[in-house]
């Protein structure tokens, strides 16, 4: 089912990787949108992908890596990849990550 994807074409996937934390246990969630692709695109577009967030004070907080790629594994165009400190996982980031955790598969 061909979907008009963000920059160009086809289907895509959203990967969320949570690393750090005092336990040091990395967890992953992933979704590959189907019929609801346009809704997911909205969530993706709402995020501040180019913001440089850092948290140099905290120790043991989670770090979130969020990546959008094409279903064939190629990077999305435009490239969507960000590393977000737990303290900055707010607003559209939080909405997107919460949705991926609810709907996505654990890895």
């Amino acid at each position: 089912m061909a979907q008009p994807a963000e920059g160009d074409e086809r289907s895509f996937r959203i990967l969320v990787v949570r690393s750090g934390g005092v336990a040091g246990i990395t967890r992953r969630w992933q979704v590959e949108p189907g019929d609801d692709a346009e809704e997911w695109r909205e969530l993706v577009r709402a995020c501040p992908w180019d913001a440089e967030d850092s948290d140099t004070e905290s120790r043991d907080r989670f770090v979130w890596r969020i990546e959008v790629s094409r279903s064939d594994g190629q990077p999305a165009d435009p490239v969507r990849s960000a590393s977000v400190p737990d303290a900055q996982l707010l607003g559209p980031w939080r909405t997107l990550v919460d949705r991926v955790q609810q709907c996505g598969s654990h890895g």
Binding site: V22, E57, S58, R61
Partner: peptide, 9 residues
């Protein structure tokens, strides 16, 4: 919440 942390303070 699955964590404990130090926030600098």
């Amino acid at each position: 919440y699955d964590n404990a942390f130090w926030n600098g303070e």
